[in-house]
Design a protein around this nucleic acid. Structure first.
Lengths: 337, 337
DNA sequence: CTTGTGTGCGTTACCGGTAACGCACTAGAC
DNA sequence: GTCTAGTGCGTTACCGGTAACGCACACAAG
């Protein structure tokens, strides 16, 4: 760790070996102007020969700019849905020479705040935040430092800076209309994250709004104090159906839960959708092997991640960007409703 | 980005406001010794009042040490299995004051090499690598800079530095023995990642070794040129069973594929395990809602991630560590074989 | 009263780059 | 032949911290 032989070759060594000044070597490596082709070749040859590894810490420090680090906050890294977003942002940001520092907040604004405090000490060029809401302190930290920020996943119509996301309420509303149109009237809901309501709650509310237009309400609701998943969907459905035996359709927080619910219903000998309808959100790959095509909302996590990265980079560069970008979603009728 | 009012408050401002030297303020903030309680309070008060955000770039640069960054490479961020590893490492490393910079290599050693080159320019305190093998250049870069490295996921008995992982060959061997013991003899295999064989191939080889001890071989193998997943498991099984109609068991690269295969078999009216046995690896949550308990290998991605983080930190600090750490796995018999 | 040992702090130099500036030299315009 | 503009490069100062060192002062031991 200390000043032993690690990374002993610095720009000065390279410059001396190439017979130029440190500054000229720096210019060559940054592809700035002010050097001849011959000099360039000599410097690059020495870089290669000596195995020089640039020092971004020093480079960032030396220029008065922010680093090329972008802080990205995710709810969990173990979510494949969100992981696809991270893959897409990582890829897009890397293409423009940025590195990401990823943290997870587990849907808790306070955890996100701690992470933001920490990440700011790396003088990032921008942040991508995914918590559905932020603490006052988080908002102030960001405002105070005037750092570009993209809020993602959840669309925020009055964002801190930029917002790129899905219109969850619309997803729920659209699905609600669809379910009603299919003739269902005794509709239940199974969700999770009771302690930290996120965008899933918005979808539920959108769905409820659609129900209201038809003079309906949810007949029963089960929101688990758990992370969404296959098994929570399974036992959440079990619980719900024990309480409300006459439901004819269930809307789920997401596809994983819907699939779990699907199998619970199957295990009880129910026919889908004639006995009970099942609707999810997210179009995850696991649904592809169900005997029926799941009724769900198709989203593109990849499009979201890329759009967020591109918008943030534009903001960082001072190019014009829309403050709010909706990532389109589409209802997939399937045949489980 | 440039020297506008962002982050304008530095340690000197704080020190002046507190009526001490920059050095004393630095000592207080680093909790080093050499200041009185009264001074400490004055400094901290000004830090709070002025909203000083420490500058890790400058701090890293100022000390002759490496940064507190740990580079972590993952195959994909969209894998929930690997994501759980990342969550665990992130958590453990954060606890010790390290930040992670995560990159994905998509199982391609060359991609990992590019990422390593890049990450080294941040002068990381250590690296966690997950590619099953590394290019010669990667190995040399690491050796040259003497940077602590933990290779994870795949156990490497002669690691670059540290190895923490599952013994995939053993997992395969154990499952092979189990499957044989259950009376199966015409056994097939369905895998993926044909272009970039990873630990899945090791499990297959371990399984083959078990077959060999009983004088058996795989009756048919289908390795798809695709990432593993539910649907690849589904259609891989379809392909395999069209080629080899009399199989009585299939070993899958992982659980997602096994679940896909399970549903393909079900869709063909096959009984499991009487007509055909199904075995996977990984014990993913999606299996929890199957009508049967999947025969698989239980792994703890969380244990792996934490063990890797702790071992790496010990190495960084110069404390004694085992070079090779096996993360235990356990065969779950289930009832699909 | 001297000596030794901390404690609390300031001073100075430095980390490895980059920005700003200046200067010699070249080539074309007049 | 002089003027001008551009090219290629070096010099100097500086980014915001930290390490190393030194020094004044307090207090205990001899």
């Amino acid at each position: 760790m200390s000043k032993d032989n690690r990374f002993k070759i610095n720009l000065l060594e390279v410059a001396k070996a190439a017979g130029v000044s440190k500054m000229t070597a720096s210019r060559v490596l940054r592809n700035a102007s002010g050097f001849s082709q011959a000099t360039r070749e000599r410097v690059l040859r020495e870089v290669e020969r000596l195995g020089y590894v640039p020092n971004r810490i020093a480079a960032t420090f030396g220029s008065d700019e922010t680093s090329t680090i972008i802080g990205v906050s995710a709810p969990y890294l173990s979510s494949s849905l969100f992981g696809a977003v991270l893959d897409a942002t990582n890829l897009a940001l890397a293409k423009f020479g940025y590195q990401t520092m990823i943290g997870s907040h587990e849907n808790r604004p306070e955890t996100e705040e701690m992470w933001v405090r920490n990440i700011l000490s790396w003088r990032p060029a921008g942040l991508i935040l995914s918590a559905h809401q932020h603490t006052r302190a988080t908002r102030e930290l960001i405002k105070q430092h005037g750092i570009p920020v993209a809020e993602i996943w959840n669309l925020n119509t009055s964002p801190l800076d930029l917002s790129i996301g899905f219109n969850h309420a619309d997803c729920g509303f659209e699905m609600g209309q669809y379910v009603i149109g299919r003739g269902h009237t005794r509709i239940g809901y199974v969700g999770a994250d009771a302690d930290a309501p996120g965008p899933g709650a918005l979808r539920r509310q959108g769905f409820e709004a659609a129900l209201a237009t038809a003079g309906l309400k949810f007949a029963a609701i089960e929101v688990l104090n758990d992370r969404p998943g296959f098994y929570p969907g399974f036992y959440g459905t079990e619980t719900l159906l024990h309480r409300a035996k006459t439901l004819d359709c269930i809307y789920y927080q997401d596809d994983a839960m819907a699939i779990g619910g699907y199998y619970y219903c199957k295990s009880q000998g129910l026919s889908i959708p004639s006995d009970i309808g099942i609707a999810g959100w997210g179009n995850i790959e696991a649904a592809s092997v169900l005997p029926q095509r799941l009724t769900t909302t198709i989203i593109s996590t990849e499009a979201l991640g890329r759009a967020a990265a591109i918008a943030l980079i534009k903001r960082i560069r001072g190019e014009p960007v829309d403050d709010v970008t909706i990532t389109p979603t589409r209802l997939a009728p399937g045949n489980t409703v």
